[in-house]
Amino acid sequence: MAEMMAAGDSPDVLFWVGCAGSFDDRAKKITKAIVKILNKANVKFAVLGAEEGCTGDPARRAGNEFLFQMQAMMNIQVLDAYEIKKIVTGCPHCFNTMKNEYPQLGGNYEVIHHSQLIQELIDTGKLQIEGGGAFKGKKITFHDPCYLGRANDVYEAPRALLEKLDAELVEMKRCRAKGLCCGAGGAQMFKEAEKGNKEVNIERTEEALEVKPAIIATGCPFCNTMMTDGVKNFNKEEETSVLDIAELISQAADL
């Protein structure tokens, strides 16, 4: 972003990579898939790189409001300095926080999740997928990330993309507004679960595997980790893979 600014240019959209997308080896692949899609569709975008910092989502949800607000205000200062208007995030948690909570602190941007941007690109003809490629006819189930679905009522965009793949979309028993959490939200990702008789991601993966999908699709790097671990736990890596919507689209478009 700094380079673009120095050249007197400005992006159409800022790609907010997020912590998982920057550091987690699995999630980095999702980041790269999103970048491939943006490049293919000739979207003029920028990333903040080292100037990006955690949105503060896990801090706020864990009760540390001070830390959240410090992070938020630092990010808002950077975003405002670059006169950012539109942001696409690779993570529903960043999406929710920046879309709904940054305005409370004076940060007003148009924030969309990457599934919404990709849908927009396809709808406007900027990105084409023919025939769904490798995924044609395959059984795919979609796990709704809580912070995309219930938190922000985005249920259709990711499903619309799956339909573009010509795949067989099968729903789990608990889906959309009734979708079960993967277990990572509310800062659980960063701690051991409290005592119980089962891990949440196991419960959810069990449910996903019941529909015998070739692919469990999701739109959140944390859900991705949780579901991937779940699938490994049942030794089903051969039959079922866990992929982000962006990865599915980029592979189908042969990027």
């Binding site: 920057s22 080292a50 955690c54 864990a62 960063f190």
Partner: peptide
């Protein structure tokens, strides 16, 4: 979670990775 708070505060990420490495991907 205390560790996570420290990481966010010091590195700008919930994990102990340096902020400078954000573009390594």
């Amino acid at each position: 979670l205390t560790g996570m708070f420290n990481n966010v505060e010091n590195n700008g990420a919930p994990w102990a990775f340096p902020q400078a490495d954000r573009l390594k991907w």
